[in-house]
Write a protein that binds this DNA or RNA. Structure first.
Length: 549
RNA sequence: GGACCCGUAGCCUAGCAGGACAGGGCGUGGGCCUCCUAAGCCCAAGGUCGCGGGUUCGAAUCCCGCCGGGUCCGCCA
């Protein structure tokens, strides 16, 4: 709804309608700062110019109630009609509210952690960003597929295979068992360097397709993935497909990419095969002297496949992949292929330094989830609820807290993980939004018990807080559009927090159930619309919208 | 050595297509449940927006330099 208001403002401004100068403002519903920009060339004060523009323009939109010039700003205010349409559209569209007319398919690759152990708290930053983006694209109307790219050909997997052979697998959650074998094997290699050669041979045989070795790799990777899947599922994340790197060896895509590179005369063959491009600061090896391929070779093949099957594809990658990704993209472009759109996120580190699966220095996502859940259970311990409900609520709140904590931080900010903060429920987190949603539900539940009247929102009945709340509610599609354009899911988290906070301002000052007749119908409409926005918003963040808590 | 990211009150964080008093939260001090869920709300104190230059009528936001933290520069993935 806000999107249409915005469009109308741009149209109304005509030649002054450059969206670069539009600002959301606390002084109006939308403001333009064009007058400041024009001040110089027109040799007039911004105030004069703004006055003139306001004088000149003609408002034809039903959604624009008034326009004012203040200190050089041109302030637009939404009309009652806009507010009324907003509420009626929300109530009408219900679970669809927020959709845009986005069309087409999109592939989102995220998480893609090496299958050498459980996901740790750095990996799930990736997962949560990727999953949230996927949900938001899907809401916008696009047909989204998600991929987990499985690095089954890496050295770490070979080491894992060695670990399983030498040390076996402990009886614990499969991904954790794999980590133990992996960490153990790394220690073995340190003391027995001759194992290096064995590991290299495993890699060679795996690439060649030696059946015995292939089944060992498969088994190790599947074992790790089954645990990883469980973890992801526990925080409401599910991939449509797991794509194994080795598939691109077996299905000919690697050969195809190599051929394309050869045809363009991009490969220099001196023992190893190297791509040398001006744009690349260094040569990139795509084939070892022993004839095997490298990670980037398979990734190029994967991206060739993506090009053939999708118009848009997004990868969520840790910032440590920046150089690698730029090499990949440059090579793809010289092949005339589209590079992926990439969301980079900075590292999650521990107070004592960065994490490492190999050294066993990490906090697993499972441990985080477990401990946060214990904390939420404590909070619920003395509530009068049956145990089953308590369990469900504490789980939903725990998962919400974790997802929100990661998604709310801008991807480019490095994070330092802190247990005391992760477990602190006094902090404003997802539970605040879930609570606001439950509050709205509770009011509506009681209204139904008392015989729900027809909802009838009326613009002219709005108090300042009600008006503000409705304006915020009107922005859901606008924020969905922003996330899609900017690929920054944290702006959506921020938005949802503002919905909850604005609703709480309304709640404090406006009795709903005790209000009389038309005011009661009016406010119930606002509460219901808020409930819908909070519910849809929480779902986009992968957080369960609880009706009671 | 080269490249990239981050640096906002005691702590965490928003804002960074330059513009109306730098928003929140935690923590601190004080207050609010005969009233729709107090996982809530209100009030107060707390800021050289890392430092120094520059561009501009105007800089947290753009440019340059420096400092601090992180990351990357493998025939690893």
């Amino acid at each position: 709804m806000f999107l249409r208001f915005r469009e109308d403002v741009i149209k109304t401004l005509g030649e002054y309608g450059d969206e670069k100068f539009l600002r959301e403002s606390e002084h109006s519903d939308l403001a333009s700062t064009v007058a400041f920009k024009l001040a110089k060339e027109m040799k007039k004060s911004p105030k004069e110019i703004a006055d003139e523009i306001v004088e000149k323009i003609e408002v034809e939109s039903d959604y624009i109630g008034s326009v004012e010039s203040t200190n050089g700003y041109i302030n637009f205010f939404a009309s009652y009609e806009f507010l009324e349409d907003t509420i009626s559209v929300i109530l009408d569209e219900d679970e669809n509210y927020g959709h845009l007319n986005a069309k087409g398919e999109i592939l989102i690759e995220h998480t893609s952690a090496n299958p050498d152990g459980p996901l740790h708290i750095g990996h799930i930053r990736n997962s949560i960003i990727g999953d949230t983006i996927a949900r938001i694209f899907s809401k916008a109307g696009m047909d989204v597929k998600t991929h987990y790219y499985v690095n089954d050909m890496g050295r770490q997997v070979a080491i894992t295979v060695l670990g399983v052979e030498k040390l076996g697998l402990k009886d614990k959650k499969p991904d954790h068992a794999i980590a133990e074998a992996y960490i153990g094997a790394n220690r073995l290699i340190e003391t027995q360097p001759e194992l290096e050669e064995y590991v290299e041979n495993l890699m060679l045989e795996y690439e060649r397709g030696n059946e015995d070795i292939v089944s060992k790799f498969r088994k190790a990777v599947e074992t790790a993935l089954s645990g990883i899947r469980q973890t992801l599922e526990s925080i409401n994340i599910k991939h449509d497909e797991f794509i194994w790197e080795s598939e691109f060896i077996r299905n000919g895509y690697v050969d195809k990419v190599i051929r394309d590179l050869e045809e363009k005369n991009l490969i220099k063959k001196e023992g190893a095969w190297t791509i040398e491009l001006e744009e690349l600061e260094k040569g990139v090896v795509v084939r070892r002297e022993n004839g095997t391929t490298l990670y980037i070779t398979r990734d190029l093949a994967y991206h060739l496949w993506k090009n053939e099957n999708y118009n848009r594809f997004i990868n969520v990658l840790g910032a440590d992949h920046k150089l690698y990704a730029s090499q990949l993209s440059k090579i793809l472009m010289t092949l005339g292929l589209k590079p992926p759109e990439i969301i980079f996120f900075e590292f999650v580190s521990l107070p004592e330094g960065s994490m490492s699966t190999r050294r066993g220095k990490f906090i697993s996502a499972d441990e985080l989830i477990e401990r946060v859940k214990e904390e939420t259970e404590k909070i619920l311990a003395d509530r009068e609820m049956d145990e089953e409900e308590k369990r469900k609520i504490s789980e939903a709140v725990a998962v919400g807290a974790i997802r929100f904590d990661f998604v709310k931080v801008a991807p480019e900010k490095p994070m330092v993980f802190d247990w005391s903060k992760a477990l602190d429920f006094e902090r404003q987190t997802a539970s605040y939004i879930q609570y606001s949603h439950a509050r709205a539900c509770s009011i509506l539940r009681k209204a139904v018990e008392e015989g729900m009247p027809d909802l009838d929102f009326r613009g002219e009945l709005c108090t300042a807080e009600e008006r503000k709340l409705v304006m915020v509610l009107s922005k859901l599609p606008y924020f969905i559009q922003r996330v899609i354009k900017e690929l920054r899911p944290n702006v959506f988290a921020e938005y949802l927090l503002s919905v909850a906070s604005t609703f709480n301002d309304f709640y404090r000052l406006h009795p709903v159930l005790r209000a009389k007749s038309e005011l009661r119908m009016h406010r119930l409409a606002i509460v219901d619309a808020t409930r819908i926005v909070l519910r849809n918003g929480l779902e986009l963040l992968g957080i369960e919208p609880l009706e009671r808590m």
